[in-house]
Simulated assay, not measured.
Amino acid sequence: MANQAEKLLVQRIRDGQEEAWQELIGQFEGRLFAYVHRRIADRATCEDIVQEAFIGFANSLPNFDENRPLESFLFSICSNKLTDHLRRSGRRPAIPISATEDSQGPRSFTGPGRAASTLFRSQERKNIEVAALEEAIREQTEHWKSTGKWEKLKCLELIMVCGMANRAVADQLNIPQTQVANYKFEFVTRVRDRVKSQRISADIFPELADQTNEISDA
C-alpha cells in the first residue's frame, strides 16, 4: 500500500506542480535506468525507455489508484516499455515486472481491446489522427514562440528533430537532465490536451477518452 508521502506526491503532480514532477523523476529515474540498463547496453536507448515510462505514468494519472505503491507501478510500466522495445528488436522479452527477480513477468496496463483497435484502425482514422496531431503540435509550438519559451523550443528540437538523448540535450543547453525530461513531458502533455480539446471521437483516440481537458498558459 502506498504511504502518505507518495499519495501527496501524486496529488501534487495531478495539480500540475512542476517541482513535484521533478521530484518524481529525481526519486525514481536512476533506479529505472539501472533496471533497463541490465538488459540494454546503449545508454540513449535506456534513457528513452525510462522517459517513455514516465510519460506512460502521466497518461495513467486519471485512473491511477493512489493506494497502489508508486514504485511498483512505475517499474511495471517500465517493464512493459522494455518488453515492447525487446520485441521490436527481436529479442526475447523475459524480464521481471519490478526490480526484483521473483516476478512472473510483465503485466499490461492497457485495456484488452486497445491493441486490437489500434491495429485495425482504418486509413481514414489514421488521416484524422495525423491531422489532429499536426494541428496540436503547431498550436503548442506557436504558443511557446509567442510567449518566448525559447529554451523549451530548443530542447524540443534537439530531442524530436535531431534525435538526441536527454543527457546530450542537457549538455548542449547546459541545463539539468531532469529539466530536459520535464520539458519533454510538458510538451507531450500539452499536445495531448490540445488534441483532446478538438473533441475528436473517442473511437479515433481511445487513449484520451478518460482524461480531462485542461490547457494552461505554460
Results as ranks from 00 to 15, higher is better:
Asp65Ser: 08
Lys154His: 14
Arg31Ala: 14
Cys155Pro: 06
Leu153Trp: 14
Lys149Gly: 04
Arg31Gln: 15
Phe187Gly: 00
Val10Trp: 08
Glu134Thr: 03
Arg88Phe: 01
Thr118Ile: 10
Ala116Asn: 11
Arg114Met: 15
Thr110Lys: 07
Val10Pro: 04
Thr147Phe: 08
Gly16Arg: 01
Ser72Phe: 01
Leu86Val: 06
Ile128Cys: 03
Ile55His: 08
Ala5Gly: 04
Lys7Trp: 09
Pro69Asp: 10
Thr45Asp: 13
Arg14Asn: 13
Ala20Ile: 13
Asn127Trp: 02
Ile200Met: 02
Leu208His: 14
Asn182Gln: 04
Gly30His: 12
Glu214Gly: 01
Arg39His: 13
Glu66Lys: 12
Thr178Leu: 00
Ser89Leu: 04
Val191Cys: 04
Asp84Trp: 00
Glu29Trp: 08
Gln123Val: 10
Ala209Arg: 12
Ile13Val: 14
Ala131Tyr: 02
Met160Ile: 09
Val130Ser: 06
His37Ile: 05
Asn127Ile: 06
Ala132Phe: 00
Ile204Phe: 02
Asn182Thr: 10
Ala44Trp: 03
His37Tyr: 12
Arg199Glu: 04
Ile25Leu: 11
Arg88Met: 07
Val50Tyr: 01
Ala170Cys: 00
Arg192Ser: 10
Asp171Arg: 06
Lys196Gln: 02
Glu186Leu: 08
Ser103Glu: 10
Leu86Ala: 05
Ala131Asp: 10
Gly30Met: 08
Glu71Leu: 06
Arg167Gln: 03
Ser146Met: 13
Glu142Cys: 09
Ala202Cys: 09
Glu207Ala: 14
Gln27Arg: 15
Gln198Ser: 05
Ser98Asp: 15
Glu129Tyr: 01
Ala209Pro: 03
Val10Ile: 15
Glu151Trp: 11
Gln172Pro: 00
Val195Gly: 01
Gln4Leu: 10
Asn63Cys: 05
Thr45Leu: 14
Ile25Gln: 05
Phe109Thr: 02
Ala34Thr: 15
Asp193Asn: 10
Arg39Ser: 04
Arg14Ala: 04
Asp65Pro: 02
Ile159Cys: 11
Leu8Phe: 09
Ile175Pro: 06
Arg38Glu: 15
Ala94Glu: 10
Met1Gly: 13
Leu82Arg: 00
Gln211Ala: 09
Glu207Asp: 15
Asn59Ile: 05
Cys155Glu: 08
Glu134Arg: 03
Ala20Tyr: 08
Asn3Ser: 09
Lys145Gly: 05
Val130Gln: 09
Ala115Asp: 11
Gly56Asp: 05
Ser60Ile: 09
Val36Met: 11
Ala168Gly: 00
Asn59Tyr: 14
Lys154Gln: 13
Asn182Val: 01
Leu61Ser: 07
Arg43Ile: 08
Ile137Trp: 07
Leu74Val: 03
Gln211Asn: 13
Asp48Glu: 15
Arg88Trp: 03
Gln27Pro: 07
Ala181Trp: 05
Phe205Ala: 07
Ser72Arg: 05
Cys78Val: 01
Gly113Pro: 01
Ala53Gly: 14
Ala209Phe: 07
Phe57Lys: 05
Asn67Glu: 10
Tyr35Met: 10
His85Phe: 15
Val10Lys: 06
Asp84Asn: 08
Val36Glu: 11
Lys7Ile: 15
Pro112Leu: 15
Ser122Glu: 03
Asp171Tyr: 04
Pro176Gly: 00
